[in-house]
């Protein structure tokens, strides 16, 4: 199967083929979802190194456990759940207030006017600090909702909690972030 053929297949077909040992099919799943999973991990754990490790572990775990997946079409939801849990475990093991990195791609470009660059940096610093101030679960709920557009139902499933709890965590996270980001509204 060529890369182009694999790209045209849906998740369920790729999962079924991967389970049969088709490496190219699984590579296509990795290509398809490594970006979203990396974005999710980076925003929850806050450091590029930990995010890369988490995503690598997730895709290796997924490869090993494909046989346990009852519904081949549910692969993406399963991936979100596994990535979220992996990241929450990283945060729970970490010392409180471990520093997180600012993402390089978001640094102001050299062409940015100095006064604008200062403002952009201040915004990013404020956002990073605000995200650090959330509990791991609040942060995960917020990232899944705001960055990944997951529904309350999907978030509840990913974190292993109720929709009601997701609503509460989101409300608290948003209140905190709104306060910190108020100067840039």
């Amino acid at each position: 199967m060529s890369v182009a053929e694999a790209a045209a297949l849906d998740d369920a077909t790729l999962v079924a083929r991967s389970r049969d040992g088709d490496m190219r099919a699984y590579e296509q799943l990795v290509r398809r979802y490594q970006g979203p999973m990396y974005r999710l991990a980076l925003r929850i754990v806050g450091s590029t190194g930990d995010a890369e490790d988490a995503v690598q572990d997730v895709f290796l775990t997924a490869w090993r456990r494909l046989g346990q997946l009852n519904d081949d079409g549910a692969f993406l939801g399963w991936l979100y759940r596994t990535t979220t849990n992996q990241c929450l475990n990283v945060l729970r093991k970490r010392k409180p207030h471990a520093d997180t990195e600012l993402d390089e791609h978001e640094s102001p470009s050299p062409r940015t006017r100095p006064d604008r660059a200062v403002e952009v940096n201040a915004q990013l610093d404020a956002l990073q600090a605000a995200l650090r101030g959330l509990t791991p679960e609040q942060r995960a709920c917020w990232v899944l909702r705001e960055v990944h557009g997951r529904s309350y139902d999907e978030i509840a499933e990913a974190i292993g909690t109720t929709q009601q709890s997701v609503r509460g965590r989101l409300a608290r996270a948003r209140a905190q972030l709104a306060e910190v980001m108020a100067p840039w509204r």
């Binding site: 974005r39 993402d103 791609h105 960055v147 972030l177 980001m181």
Partner: peptide, 15 residues
């Protein structure tokens, strides 16, 4: 605020 936060968080690329 929702748009601002989403914009600030949406552009991370996997290595």
């Amino acid at each position: 605020l929702k748009a601002l936060l989403a914009r600030k968080c949406g552009g991370d690329y996997a290595p």
